[in-house]
């Protein structure tokens, strides 16, 4: 605890005046709570802000530790589960069927009207189609399957829908993104719109895109979901973390996915 304390102070000091720092942008009115939704210009992948050694680790198909989760996901994809002893592959076939799937999540499930992220969709499929025991959020099998499915969309641009039934979720996610939270009283936007590219200790602040998730994070010594990363951010600004699977996470994820629109999926990413 003592070791991280100065880092926390650093965050407070660096970002105390973040609110008054408005980055020049192609779009007017970048930061205010009531501003129209805008995106960083130019859009840059999360990996761009990682140190060169971490970028190299992500880029090399073997050196990337996240590929261990992809490999496990490939095995689980073919493993029969549930009362019907059916595997994912029994319905969906091989990897090709999942190409592009990750670019469209989170999305609204037409049957239930619920907003689902990729993990949520896998869990729903597992309970409703396979009738198998549910996987826990952030469990290793769920991370592995998600990593495998996301990996099939590597290089494809994000393109979520924010129209129709998705719109209210999107608007709430957008508001949440601008909302100051925690003891440090910071919003997502203050770091990831107004101060991306700047240094925070040894860290370079990213634009906050989720295109690499699930990522392998050195700090975690393992793979983790975008929801876990959002929880990390919340704990970083000393705010209460949202529970896994909560509306807050899903709505924020939808806003982030729209904000990353056009950026290529780079899962499994590697982060510091």
């Amino acid at each position: 605890m003592r070791a991280v304390l100065p880092c926390a102070w650093l965050l407070a000091v660096v970002l105390a005046c973040a609110g008054c720092t408005v980055r020049e942008s192609a779009d007017p009115g970048t930061t205010g709570v009531h501003a129209a939704p805008v995106r960083p210009v130019p859009l840059q992948q999360g990996s761009v802000f990682a140190p060169p050694s971490v970028q190299a680790m992500q880029a090399d198909e073997f050196e990337n530790p996240g590929m261990l989760w992809v490999a496990r996901g490939a095995k689980l994809w073919r493993q029969p589960e549930g009362s019907g002893a059916r595997s994912c592959a029994d319905c969906h076939g091989d990897a090709g069927s999942m190409r592009g799937a990750a670019t469209r999540y989170p999305q609204v499930d037409p049957a239930s009207g619920q907003l689902l992220d990729l993990e949520g969709r896998i869990m729903q499929c597992r309970s409703e189609r396979q009738q198998a025991a549910p996987l826990a959020w952030e469990s290793e099998p769920l991370l592995a399957l998600t990593a495998w499915v996301a990996f099939q969309s590597r290089g494809l641009p994000m393109q979520v829908s924010i129209d129709g039934p998705a719109r209210p979720f999107f608007e709430r996610g957008r508001e949440r993104y601008q909302q100051r939270v925690g003891q440090m009283n910071l919003s997502c936007s203050q770091c990831h719109d107004a101060n991306w590219g700047r240094q925070l200790g040894a860290e370079t602040i990213s634009q906050g895109h989720g295109t690499g998730y699930p990522v392998y994070r050195l700090e975690w010594q393992g793979a983790g979901s975008l929801q876990r990363r959002l929880r990390s951010c919340l704990s970083g600004v000393r705010a209460e973390m949202f529970p896994y699977g909560s509306q807050e996470h899903l709505e924020l994820s939808l806003y982030l996915a729209w904000r990353a629109g056009g950026l290529a999926i780079e899962a499994p990413g590697v982060r510091r």
């Binding site: 880092c7 860290e203 700090e219 929880r231 704990s235």
Partner: peptide, 10 residues
């Protein structure tokens, strides 16, 4: 050895 800038309680 450098440390992460943000406390991670996730």
């Amino acid at each position: 050895v450098t440390e992460s800038a943000c406390l991670d309680g996730s």
